[in-house]
Amino acid sequence: MLLIRCPFCEEERPEVEFRYAGEAHVVRAADPMGESDEAWAGYLYLRTNPKGWHAERWHHVHGCGRFFNAVRHTMSDRIVSTYKPGEARPEPDDAQGTGEAAR
């Protein structure tokens, strides 16, 4: 079971307190009606699905109730950092997520 640090509670808590909420930094257009069908479909359905670092949203549903972002490595599940919405996405270097350090 993963340990996840909630940036609002500032505590590391077990995974069961949280719910995954999809990829982070997917921006909803300020004027959706001004978007082309193609652009809107991309916003709705296209995700990066990387093998490597992934910025994603988590919801502290059984805690403070806040949504926040985490950067997790999709191979090792290692979460390198969590941060509040609106903050810049950290860019970890590749070595931090792979290899034996995973867990």
Binding site: R19, A21, F67
Partner: peptide, 13 residues
């Protein structure tokens, strides 16, 4: 509730 919270916290801030 989760859906409303999501938009309130992250889109309609």
């Amino acid at each position: 509730l989760a859906h409303m919270e999501d938009y309130l916290q992250t889109e309609f801030t």
